[in-house]
C-alpha cells in the first residue's frame, strides 16, 4: 500500500508529542516486554541515542530508562515536512517480579536498547521430584 504525501515549500507544522515531566521534554519510547523462563526482556526503541549515554537504573522495583538525544539539525531549520520531534527518551516501569538487580545487563544496537533482567533464583521454575513411598 503506497501513501503519497505532497510536500510544499511552506514550513510544515511541528508535532508537539513530547510529554513534560521533571521540567524537561521527554518522549516515551515504544517498548516490548517479554517474559522468558529465567529473565524479563525489555526492548526499547530509542533511535538516535548513543549507547554510552543511555542511563538505566533499577531501584526499589522501578526500572527507569533515560536516553538523551541531541538535536541533529540546527534549531532554525525550516522543515518542508515535519512529522516527528526530537528529544530525550524517558520511561519507567514497575517491575513486580523479583529481579536479581546485580545481574541486570543492557546492550544497545541500531537504535534499540535491550535489557536483560534475570529473575531471582528463588523464582525460577524448579522441578520438584516426587518420591513415592
Amino acid at each position: 500500500m503506497a501513501n503519497s504525501t505532497e510536500t510544499t515549500k511552506k514550513a510544515a507544522e511541528r508535532p508537539e508529542s513530547a510529554e513534560r515531566t521533571r521540567g524537561g521534554q521527554f518522549f516515551r519510547p515504544n517498548c516490548d516486554i517479554v517474559e522468558r523462563a529465567d529473565e524479563l526482556l525489555v526492548l526499547a526503541d530509542v533511535p538516535g541515542a548513543q549507547g554510552d549515554r543511555i542511563d538505566v537504573k533499577f531501584e526499589d522495583g522501578t526500572l527507569s530508562i533515560h536516553a538523551p538525544i541531541d538535536r541533529r539539525q540546527a534549531p532554525e531549520t525550516e522543515y518542508l515536512l515535519c512529522e516527528y520531534a526530537v528529544g530525550d527518551y524517558w520511561r519507567t516501569f514497575q517491575v513486580s517480579e523479583a529481579v536479581d538487580a546485580s545481574k541486570i545487563s543492557a546492550e544497545y544496537a541500531n537504535g534499540v536498547l535491550t535489557l536483560h533482567l534475570p529473575k531471582a533464583e528463588s523464582l525460577k521454575p524448579r522441578k520438584i521430584a516426587v518420591t513415592s513411598a
Partner: peptide, 18 residues
Amino acid sequence: LSYHRRERPTGSFTRVLR
C-alpha cells in the same frame, strides 16, 4: 513466551513522497 507489552511497530510499509 508471554508478552507483557508489545508496542514496537512491526511489519512492512511503503511510502511515497513527492
